[in-house]
Amino acid sequence: MKGKVQCPLGQQRGRLIPLPERLNIVDMLRNAMKQGARKAQACQVIGISVRTLQRWRNNCHNAPLADKRSTAVRNAPSNKLSDAERQRCQRYFRLTTFCYFKMSSFC
């Protein structure tokens, strides 16, 4: 029985692959498929799934899209302290009882 396939990219699932590297991978896969390789086998050798390749080329020009995770606008967590709450915590933790701790460990 075969073990897990190690990714030649040297990283784990869900990794952020920069656009220049995506362009290179898509170009290598295109060349391999022009020379007769099957898409699934070529993707397996590179270390990505066929579905990943489809997501990367999911536009009208079939050019790889940039990953939008790094530039996504995210909402603040619902349990984030307000500025007033944060200041109150900081005043409380400045007491002599907590003076040996760093402020960043509390707020």
Rank of each mutant, 00 (worst) to 15 (best):
V5F: 12
V5N: 13
V5I: 14
C7T: 10
P8G: 15
L9C: 03
L9N: 05
G10H: 10
G10T: 10
G10C: 09
G10E: 04
Q12K: 15
R13S: 14
R13A: 15
R13H: 14
I17S: 02
L19M: 12
P20I: 08
E21C: 07
R22Y: 05
R22T: 03
R22Q: 07
L23D: 12
N24H: 09
V26A: 10
V26W: 00
M28S: 07
L29A: 01
R30M: 12
N31R: 12
N31Q: 13
N31W: 01
N31T: 08
A32F: 01
K34T: 08
Q35H: 10
Q35T: 08
G36T: 07
G36H: 04
G36K: 01
A37P: 03
R38D: 10
K39Y: 02
K39S: 09
A40I: 14
A40C: 10
Q41P: 01
Q41V: 07
C43G: 03
C43V: 04
V45L: 04
I46A: 00
G47C: 06
I48R: 01
I48D: 02
I48A: 04
V50A: 10
V50C: 06
R51Y: 06
R51K: 12
R51N: 13
T52W: 01
T52M: 07
L53I: 01
Q54C: 06
Q54L: 06
R55F: 14
W56D: 00
W56P: 01
R57Y: 00
R57K: 06
N58I: 05
N58C: 14
C60W: 07
N62V: 02
A63H: 13
A63C: 07
A63W: 10
P64R: 00
P64D: 02
P64A: 01
K68N: 14
T71A: 06
T71G: 05
T71I: 11
R74L: 10
N75A: 15
P77T: 05
P77F: 02
S78L: 13
S78Q: 13
N79P: 03
K80G: 02
L81V: 00
A84V: 10
A84L: 04
E85P: 01
R86N: 07
Q87P: 05
R88Q: 08
R88L: 06
